[in-house]
Design a protein around this nucleic acid. Structure first.
Lengths: 235, 235
DNA sequence: CGGTGTGAAAGTTTTCACAGCG
DNA sequence: CGCTGTGAAAACTTTCACACCG
């Protein structure tokens, strides 16, 4: 484009990037990390796409939203692309996170190693149940929700996870917002009402099963021959 | 359309329904169940949409993929629409499900009440760890994965959940497919290769946090400002 | 009225196809 | 060569706007 230097992530980006593109970036990153761990140095858009069930053009277009990262005739260097995608996603630095709700699911998430692998670290966990407050789970002392504002401020935390029952989720969301949080992952099966400056991502496990139920139910009412090989469709 | 009888879910559906429409159907259903529990009899597309952040037209168009369910001037009857949407999603009947992997997360999912609420029931759980096989968790006796085919056949199970580490997920998927499963929810952070007749839904918890990281990082690069995520050190 | 259902228009995302580069 | 980056075309999704209904 402007000149002919070595590829690098310059910023043509000012257009607004579709959400679905960002979710694919996460999938590219995940796959690249696997490839790198397997010793692969470079990869082409075609190969990367095939591993995930996307076209080569889609991979290139997606990356094109953020800059130029490839080498014509060669492909992309895994290490460079991983670094670039972490920059895009904001995960080249560590994110401290708070969790509210340490029931079944909350406790499991506290022990999930996958967060740390992508540079997220649950730094504090809260509950309202007095029988839980003060106990130690996965090395963390559970605190009373009343301490939320102080802890968020002291640790400079911007992200929170809601892992409480549906009927308590909005109240917890309000507390997180009041404490100054910028983004929330909501595992409760309810839609939160939030001020527009707070970002949110919803995960509803029952809905995932419903989507599968629909797909399986309607499998034999579809068009004929379906897609390429058996690559899994991304969410 | 054809005649003027009471609205009901007849099926103009043969067009292929976009996935994003199906995911909104799940959200409509969730909200309707909440409204019904709160005693509401009817709801308009505008009100329902507003509760979820969608336009009235979107709600009507989405429902239009599956039939005619509304009463002009009135809206939709909650009980009817709930039933219709369960029919669409295939959750008016109970789905028995198998789970493979009863680590941290698997055990939490075994205890999650939200599945039962939407008519899914985890009927059997498997692991390969001999120290887990034979133990009872959440009232279920954990079985050896070798028993998968027999149990799936005997209980007529069509859906499976993969809750094992990434490096074991493909092998487990192959076993589920061999056992005759039709759909898989995959919680492992890896893309599965599956035959085209097997449906799949992927849930990657770290990716959800990454999406939030991106949104928060770029919140102030949206309207006019500079520097969304491109910056990278020139090589 | 207040609301649905639905073509047609607008907007968005994906695919195509090809110039250009090492 | 093999592959990227990217306009332009195609496909798809959302919004608009309005006839019609109770």
């Amino acid at each position: 484009m402007p000149d002919s230097r070595t590829p690098s992530g310059d910023q043509p980006s000012d257009q607004t990037v579709p959400k679905v593109v960002v979710s694919r970036i996460s999938l590219y990153l995940r796959e690249l990390q696997r490839l790198q761990a397997a010793g692969q140095q470079t990869i082409s858009s075609g190969t990367l796409g095939a591993l995930l069930g996307f076209s080569d053009a889609q991979v290139r277009k997606d990356l094109g939203f953020f800059g130029q990262f490839g080498y014509p005739g060669v492909g992309y260097r895994c290490d460079e692309l991983i670094h670039a995608m972490r920059d895009i996603l904001g995960t080249n630095h560590r994110w401290p996170v708070v969790m509210v709700g340490v029931g079944n699911l909350g406790q499991a998430l506290l022990g999930y190693r996958g967060f740390g692998r992508q540079n997220f670290s649950i730094e504090a966990a809260f509950d309202t149940d007095p029988s839980k407050v003060g106990t130690v789970i996965q090395g963390l002392t559970i605190r009373d929700v009343a301490e939320l504002p102080e802890v968020v401020r002291r640790l400079g935390i911007r992200l929170g996870m809601i892992v409480v029952p549906a009927d308590r989720a909005q109240e917890v969301a309000d507390r997180l917002v009041a404490a100054g949080i910028d983004g929330i992952v909501n595992f409760a099966p309810v839609t939160l009402t939030l001020p527009p400056h707070v970002e949110t991502v919803a995960v509803d496990l029952a809905i995932e099963l419903e989507q599968l139920s629909f797909a399986v139910t309607n499998k034999f009412g579809k068009p004929a021959g379906e897609g390429p090989a058996g690559a899994q469709e991304p969410r």
